[in-house]
Structure formats: C-alpha cells, structure tokens
Amino acid sequence: MTQQDPPKIEFPCPNYPIKVLGEAGEVLQSLVVEVMARHDPDFNAERISVKDSGKGRWQSVTVFITATGIEQLEAIHQDLRAHPATKIVL
C-alpha cells in the first residue's frame, strides 16, 4: 500500500468552507460573522447556512471565505475555538 500526500490547497482559495458546531443561538452566529469579517475583508454574511439539531440544542453554521493561507485558517480556528459557545470547528 502506498502512502499518498493529502491534497494541497492552492491559495487564494475562493469558496473555502468552514463549519462551526456549537450551542444553538444568536451568540454562535454572531461570533462566526465577527471572526470571518475580521479575517476575510470580502466575507459575505449572506452566504451563511445554519442548521439546527433535531432537538434544537445545537447548531452548525457553515460559511464560505476566500482562504489566503495557512496562517489565516489557523487564526480563524483559534479565534473560534476560544469562545465557549463553540464545540467543533471543521
């Protein structure tokens, strides 16, 4: 069996998806918009997709950004993970 390298992202990468899972409510959505706007000046808040869990306690918030590099993506993940409403960042 040969080991393959993971696919490499070419930057800038438009329409790069980021999904944030956390406690349902406006706090999570506001946090995601704030963080994305800080790290992507062209962020379009109208392209947010929000899905509630079956019982409504959790939400997934998916956004699309123009990824400019690994440093940007790491900073976004760090900022999102720092908030207690966030459980997982994909």
Rank of each mutant, 00 (worst) to 15 (best):
Q29L: 10
H83C: 09
V50Y: 01
R38W: 10
Y16G: 00
P14T: 05
P12F: 06
P17S: 04
G54N: 12
D42R: 10
E34C: 12
W58T: 13
R38Q: 12
K55D: 13
M1R: 00
N44F: 00
R57L: 14
V32G: 02
T2N: 03
I18R: 05
T66K: 06
A37H: 01
P7R: 11
I9T: 10
Q72K: 04
S60L: 10
Q29W: 03
K51E: 11
Q29N: 11
E23T: 15
Q72D: 02
L28T: 12
G56I: 11
Q4F: 03
Q59N: 15
L21E: 00
I65Q: 01
P12W: 13
H83V: 02
F11R: 00
N15I: 08
E34T: 14
L21D: 02
D52C: 13
G56C: 04
Q72V: 01
P12R: 01
T2Y: 08
G56K: 13
E34S: 09
H77L: 01
F64W: 15
A45W: 02
H77F: 02
F11M: 01
L90F: 10
Y16V: 03
M36T: 01
E46W: 01
G69A: 04
A37N: 11
S53Q: 14
E10D: 01
V20R: 02
G54P: 08
D52G: 14
D42I: 10
G69E: 07
R57H: 14
H77S: 09
I48H: 09
T66I: 09
A24H: 13
I48E: 02
T62C: 15
T68I: 11
D5L: 14
T66C: 05
T62G: 13
E74V: 06
L28R: 04
E10V: 08
V89G: 00
A37F: 01
C13A: 15
D79Q: 05
P7C: 02
I48K: 08
Q59C: 14
E26L: 14
W58I: 05
T68C: 12
E23Y: 09
V33D: 07
P6L: 05
T86I: 07
Q78G: 07
I88Y: 08
G69S: 01
D52L: 15
Q29M: 09
S30M: 05
I48Q: 13
P14F: 04
Q29R: 15
P6V: 09
G56H: 10
T66V: 08
V27D: 05
I48C: 12
I70S: 13
D40K: 04
V89I: 08
V27L: 10
A67I: 14
I48A: 07
G22D: 03
A82S: 12
P6S: 03
